[in-house]
Design a protein around this nucleic acid. Sequence first.
DNA 1: TTTCTGTTGACCATACGGGTCAATGACATC
DNA 2: GATGTCATTGACCCGTATGGTCAACAGAAA
Lengths: 207, 207
Amino acid sequence: MFSKFLSLEKEKQDRIINAAIKEFAQKGYDKASTNEIVKEAGISKGLLFHYFGNKKQMYFFLFDYCTTLITDEYYLKVNFKETDFFTRIRQAIIVKMEMLGTHPDIFKFIQEVFLEDSPEIKVEFDKKKQEITHINMEKFYEGIDYSKFREDVDLKKIIKIITWTFEKLSDEVLNQAKMSPNHEIDYQNILDETEEYFQVLTRCFYK
Amino acid sequence: MFSKFLSLEKEKQDRIINAAIKEFAQKGYDKASTNEIVKEAGISKGLLFHYFGNKKQMYFFLFDYCTTLITDEYYLKVNFKETDFFTRIRQAIIVKMEMLGTHPDIFKFIQEVFLEDSPEIKVEFDKKKQEITHINMEKFYEGIDYSKFREDVDLKKIIKIITWTFEKLSDEVLNQAKMSPNHEIDYQNILDETEEYFQVLTRCFYK
DNA sequence: TTTCTGTTGACCATACGGGTCAATGACATC
DNA sequence: GATGTCATTGACCCGTATGGTCAACAGAAA
């Protein structure tokens, strides 16, 4: 399907992928312009369509590319033998922070895909999205030692509260970075703050 | 400025306001179409511009309208003499749920305004948005009795975790409603679940 | 009949979108 | 040098949609 594109030299592939991801992440499917993408990537318009056929197929390709990139990284760097919930979630957060630095637009793009409701896209993606979240959730919670949690409150709610906390924390970080002049992310600060939240949460939710 | 519009009969005002809010909430500033708004409102295009001058001024008007509507309701229904954090937050959530029923599009519109980054809009709104959040935050936390919270962990973090929990819970509710066939919100269910989270959070975060 | 206000919707300029394709360039084979 | 092959170009097409205007109209009041 995308063999023509895949047999390109890596550098050019990356230039195109990055340009496209950036555009889609910023504007969403409908408003993203192929003209902008080719301009940013430094190729001609015809070539883009030569590689991907049309806009929709390109979007599919990018989604696949991003999800495998991210999940591969998680599977590589997160130790799934670790049974402590907080230790495991800490690993995941560190991986996420790293990738926020190395591939700044990918997360925004993925998020955008999950919010997307352009009719052209929605139907075909809804299944995919559900599958992916399901698989990753299952994998993520696999083998966790839940016996450490206090037993006088509903465990499922505790897990949700913890997960939500770190999601919101990550949103806040992203927002702060967007507001800051240099657009840089202060990793040490984040890790410190994350660690502080870990302390609060372990103290309150563990036995 | 909007005197012509304001001197209309209330029913017509509402028809126009609701149509416009719905359109902006769904599509965001740029993609929202004045054509759609007039169609939905059942008025002619000329009339819309006769009332509001142009699209941007209409957007301003709607933002003002919505924020005052919401804050007025909060100030009316939330008892600011109540010093218990959870009791007060419970009141706020109930008001929000009620309004999610009576004015379904308003929250989506407000949310959309806060996410909006159309260059035409962004600059002029950034100040406004900050001011509003600041004022409301201050008012909301005024007079709360913090002595009930456990003292072995950072209070600010606890407050954040609680706030985030209910924000995420509300997001989840909205999402579930969007997914459900009838688009209805199951209020009893929400209130029950909210109550359960209250129990978890009080037990873990109060002394 | 005239005047006035509220209201209409066809119309304008124009921008921008995805997608195409004849033409070009680059390079290998003969 | 000629021929063939393949990647690559970008001017161009056509359809769509936009915010905004304005001459015309309706209907009530004077």
